[in-house]
Nucleic acid binder design. Structure first.
Lengths: 118, 118
DNA sequence: CAGGATCCAAGATGATACTG
DNA sequence: CAGTATCATCTTGGATCCTG
C-alpha cells in the first residue's frame, strides 16, 4: 500500500503546490468563497467580488475549473452559464471560509494601535 | 454599540481585504505554515519553503510583521534572528494549515483521470 | 449575458553581488 | 547569519473592443 499522503505543498514540484497557488492566487480564494453559497452566474460573481475584472474572473474560473474545483454549467441556449463548486471545491471553499472567519476575528486586534500595555 | 463585524473581504477598501491578500499572497500562506511549528530563523524558513528567494522571504516576513501576524526577535549580538507568529498569526496559520490539509485530502480525487463513470 | 483577443502599465519575482 | 541593493524579466491585471 502506498503512502496515502505523498503530497507536500512546500515542494516546488508537488501537484498540491500548484493547486495551493491557484487557491491562494489574488482572486482564487475570493472566487471560491463567492461560489460557496451555491451556483452563480458569471456577472453575479463578478459583482460579488469587489475590484475584479471580467478578464481576471474568467481566467480564475478557468484555472479552478482546470483543477477540478469548479464546474461550468452551460444551459442550452447559451445565454446562461452557471459556475458551481465541485465536492472538492466545496471542501476547499469551506477551508477558505474558515480562514476568512479567522481573519475577521483577529482584525480588531490587528487594527488596535499596538499594545494595551504601553 | 458598534457592529462587532464591520469587515468584508469582498470589499476593496476593507482592511481585512488587504490582510487576506497578504495571507494568500504567493508566499504568505507557506510562510505562515512554515512558522506554525514554532519560532524559526530566517535561513531555516528559507530552506523550508521550496523555491523562495531571500528577497521574497524577507519581503513577505516584513509584510506579515506589518500586519501583526509575525514578530521578529533579534537576539543581542545580531547574528541570530528569529521569527515567530503572534497569537493572531497563529489563528491565521491554523486556518491556512486546515486549508492545506483539506487540499491534501482532495488531491487524490483531483488527480484522478476525471470521472469513474465514463 | 458571457466571455475572448489585444495592448499596455504596473507590480511581482529572481539572480547576483554586497554589507554588518 | 541575516539580510539589502540593483537590474532584468516575467507575469499579473486592467481597459477596451469585439463576438455569439
Amino acid at each position: 500500500m502506498v503512502d496515502p499522503r505523498p503530497f507536500d505543498v512546500f515542494a516546488t514540484d508537488c501537484p498540491s503546490r500548484s493547486v495551493l497557488d491557484h487557491v491562494t492566487s489574488r482572486w482564487g480564494a475570493l472566487t471560491l468563497a463567492a461560489l460557496r453559497p451555491g451556483p452563480r452566474r458569471f456577472n453575479d460573481v463578478a459583482r460579488a467580488i469587489g475590484g475584479i475584472s471580467d478578464r481576471m474572473l474568467s481566467q480564475t474560473l478557468k484555472t479552478l475549473e482546470g483543477d477540478g474545483l469548479v464546474v461550468r454549467d452551460e444551459q442550452p441556449g447559451g445565454q446562461r452559464v452557471e459556475y458551481a463548486l465541485t465536492p472538492e471545491g466545496e471542501r476547499i471553499a469551506d477551508a477558505t471560509r474558515h480562514l476568512i472567519d479567522a481573519l475577521y476575528e483577529v482584525m480588531p486586534t490587528l487594527l488596535a494601535p499596538r499594545s494595551a500595555g504601553a
